[in-house]
Design a protein around this nucleic acid. Structure first.
Lengths: 159, 159
DNA sequence: TGACAATATGTGTGATAACACGTAATATTC
DNA sequence: GAATATTACGTGTTATCACACATATTGTCA
């Protein structure tokens, strides 16, 4: 029996050391996020902005008149990108963002959302809400809250 | 009071027609998925493959000797890509995948995982399990199961 | 059998992402 | 106050993605 027990323990420790539950959650999370993101991008396409660009505009609107410098924008993004400069370049080229170098500390370039950007966000507000409703509205409020809690806990990995 | 009530209803119907709970879940999901994917990519980097490539190799291993044609691979991916051809090109160039055109129906190109690909997956198995454990192991089994259920339900959007 | 449609894959192109490195401005230290 | 470090941003380059279009093979129907 000792042998059997040892074999079992070996199997537990070596064959399935962590169980595949974590992997299942990982795959499920990637799949669900990819599906929702893709659907969201499709909904945003008519407005000519990507989800990332929309995210940046929302961040800049939230920052108000003061605006934000490049690194501050990046820090607040859903998924920080290593190339925030050219992301802001593109938004500036389309007239949604204005930039000017700070007089106090000339290293900073402050980015602010333009009137055109604010107008775009306003026009998108309702359609975006409808997108989210269409994609997640079949879950109950209780399920949504529970999902939020679990996702936050998942993100709070130790170390 | 009627006016007040009407105002409230108008606010409920127009200002916050769907509540922001769905949006909160969406943002949370994107954030958590991005963080986990980034951490996963970092863990995979030493092996020289991206998460997408790893996913394809797993799919091809699962398909066995028969292999799969391009569209079948794409259909099974976590996030289908529009350019599966060159994704498989790159894996073939590295020797992890072998392809040959089907004799029966010469439109098909069957992709199979090579011995080198199988070897790579075997070497990665343990480290990958440890990655998932490190990223999600702080959740209880019950939480993980619950999360799986909710994610599956979220993905099952109507229409 | 010959025209046409359907299927499966390949290719060309421009936009974007990721990474490393370069530059300018400010802070710090001695 | 001069050398060095730090901070914030920009640039160059390569690989990759995404989209539309092209090619090749097979099936269908008159």
């Amino acid at each position: 029996m000792n042998t059997g027990n040892t074999g079992l323990r070996a199997e537990i420790q070596q064959e399935r050391p962590f169980g595949s539950l974590e992997q299942e959650v990982f795959l499920n999370l990637m799949r669900t996020a990819a599906a929702l993101e893709h659907a969201f991008e499709d909904g945003l396409a008519p407005y000519g902005v990507t989800a990332t660009q929309y995210n940046v505009l929302r961040i800049l609107r939230g920052a108000g008149d003061g605006g934000l410098c490049r690194n501050e924008v990046n820090a607040r993004m859903i998924a920080p990108v290593p190339d925030a400069t050219r992301l802001l370049d593109r938004l500036e080229a389309r007239g949604y963002v204005e930039r000017h170098r700070e007089a106090d500390d000339r290293r900073f370039v402050r980015a602010r959302i333009s009137d055109a950007g604010l107008d775009l966000l306003e026009r998108m507000e309702r359609p975006v809400a409808e997108l989210h409703e269409a994609h997640l509205g079949h879950l109950s409020a209780s399920e949504l809250r529970h999902l939020n809690t679990l996702l936050e806990r998942a993100r709070a990995a130790p170390g």
